[in-house]
Amino acid sequence: MTATTTTMPPTPRASAPLVARESLWSRIRRGSLWISITTVAIMILLWEVIPQIGIVNRILFPTFSDTILGFGQLVSGGYWWEDLGKTLYAVAIAWVIGVTFGFVMGVALGISPFIRTAITPYAIAVQALPKVVLAPLLIGWLGFGSESKIALAVIICFFPVWIDTMVGLALPNANEFKLMQSLKASRWQVFTKLQLPSAVPMIMVGVKHALLLAFTGVLVAEILSASDGGLGKLAKEFASQLNMSLTYAVVLVVVIIAVALVSLADVVERRVVFWSEESRARKR
């Protein structure tokens, strides 16, 4: 290690690359599917029964059937489509801007080890600052419209793309750089033929993470600034009216969207970085 590089404290993430997912068939064979089904059934039963027999207040804790009714009410109500659209629109715009911004910043600051080292302390500071503290300010400044939502979501979601791009560009080892040098590759060639391809798997992870963070950012802004609408606003309004079955229904919608977005991102990721899984499997 040379003295001029530094160890950045880990910027950890929570994903489960090491936990293998099993196929449906092997789950059935090993009996774990039955455990899943039974557990879900028991949960739903408890969800249904506990409020009914009065252990908890049914108004605050609606039963499963109440929730399903609320869900039907919400979906058939019609008015919520606009809220759904507003949320998804803000997430999409913020995600695109955040990813672009993060990528450009990652390339600009990550291409040279020198700059990377120099700005590492600032990166740590940006990482350590809980960026939601800016939410009320942005709402105050940009108003209650979608601009403030998007701004907050961009600020929250560009960070992992930035860091992952920067780190990804640094992944090739000294020997790989030496190989490129021995071929007299230009700086641009080193970037496009070595650094960028090595970075893609890492960047994809950041891009996926950014999608979730953009969703979080938009929801926070919506919950805080009730007037523009969106799923966050709906959840807050219903909750403050103590209309809990509709609140549950909105939460359910958010969960479904989030899981769908992540699954979609997973599929795209697997397509784009098809070699990553292969080579990982080989190494084992």
């Binding site: 929570a14 994903s15 489960a16 936990v19 997912r21 099993e22 092997s26 789950r27 090993r30 774990s32 599917l33 455990i35 899943s36 557990t39 879900v40 979730l212 969703f215 979080t216 929801l219 926070v220 919950i223 799923l231 966050g232 959840a235 807050k236 219903f238 909750a239 403050s240 809990m244 609140t247 549950y248 909105v250 939460v251 958010v254 969960v255 989030a258 899981v259 977005l261 992540v262």
Partner: peptide
């Protein structure tokens, strides 16, 4: 693990702030 991991992995996706009003 195989029984519960799919559900728990879904938690990764959920923006927990939506639970705040609840």
């Amino acid at each position: 693990r195989t029984a519960y991991l799919p559900f728990l992995s879904a938690l990764e996706a959920i923006p927990t702030v939506i639970l705040a009003p609840l």
